[in-house]
Amino acid sequence: MATVTTQAVRTESEKQQKRLKTGAGSRNLLIGLNIVSIVLGIGIWWGLALAGFQFPTPAEVVQKAVQLWQAGILQEDILASLGRVLSGFILGSAVAIPAGFLMGWYTVARGLLEPWIQFFRTIPPLALLPLVLVLLGIGEVPKVFVIFLAAFLACVISTYQGVVSVDRTLINAARVLGAKDGTIFLRVVVPASTPFILVGMRVGLGSAWATLVAAELLAAQAGLGYRMQNAQLYYDLATIFVGIVMIGILGLVMDRLLLLAESKLTGWQERR
């Protein structure tokens, strides 16, 4: 009997090691493909610039970025834009997650909140810019507000969908075992909804960055979007490309941080 048990443990251990090796191989392949994709993309960009398209070459964009950095302009713009995006995104997620839980868990809250959320979801946050400008003035508040709205609307629906998608069998099993509603919510609903919440946050983060450029039209004095709009007046394509590349890099880094958090918080989830 002991021999059979030992053999079973050894077999399971071998399977686990095989899965780890397979996962490591897949990650290495993915990283390699990412590098190839980036190099290929830069090569296509460079080729189009040399072929006569009105693009600055990557070298010219790097040179312009160095000039802006040495002048202290790029750092100021990055900090201003990051502050607005992070403020709007964090506030939007902080409000969206409880609202999504309430809508998914309580029928009364769903009936009261869902019509308004669906109503505002059909209105692009950018369409509210004139109204926000009139009501909130031209300071930082209106810029953060439209970013907040974009992040909130993306995250709240995903959170709500996560709650209503929880397997009822899990909830019923917890009730049979004597768990109260509070325990079921914390031990069953929240963990099961976490993947949906993180997906919603990733979508909300993308919406926040997408709204940034238009938000910085509201009488901003610094920011990547503001710098791009200002460069447009002088047909300064290199500066416009610097802003585009920096927004892409910052957004990508923040998205990867959310992916890292997702892998840590949802390690229990079976993956393919």
Rank of each mutant, 00 (worst) to 15 (best):
A2K: 14
V9I: 15
R10P: 06
T11E: 13
T11Y: 08
E12W: 10
S13G: 13
S13F: 11
E14N: 15
Q17E: 13
K18N: 11
G25S: 14
S26N: 15
L29D: 08
L30I: 14
N34I: 14
V36W: 10
I42K: 04
L48I: 00
L50G: 06
T57Y: 07
T57F: 08
V61I: 08
Q63Y: 10
Q63G: 13
L68I: 05
L68Q: 04
G72W: 02
L82S: 01
L86K: 05
G88W: 02
G88D: 00
S93F: 11
V95D: 06
V95S: 12
A96F: 09
P98C: 03
G100M: 03
W105H: 15
T107H: 11
R110L: 04
E114V: 09
P115R: 03
F119T: 04
F120T: 15
R121T: 03
R121P: 06
P124K: 11
I147R: 03
F148R: 01
A150S: 14
A151V: 07
Q161G: 06
S165C: 02
A174L: 05
V176N: 13
L177R: 10
A179L: 13
D181L: 10
F185H: 04
V188I: 06
V188D: 03
V189F: 02
V189I: 08
T194F: 02
P195W: 00
G204A: 01
G204V: 02
S207L: 13
A208P: 09
T211H: 08
T211S: 12
A214F: 05
G223L: 04
G225H: 01
G225Y: 02
R227W: 05
Y235P: 06
L237K: 12
G243V: 09
V245G: 04
G248D: 02
L250C: 13
G251N: 00
M254S: 12
D255L: 06
L259V: 11
A261M: 08
S263H: 14
S263F: 08
K264A: 00
W268L: 00
Q269G: 01
R272L: 12
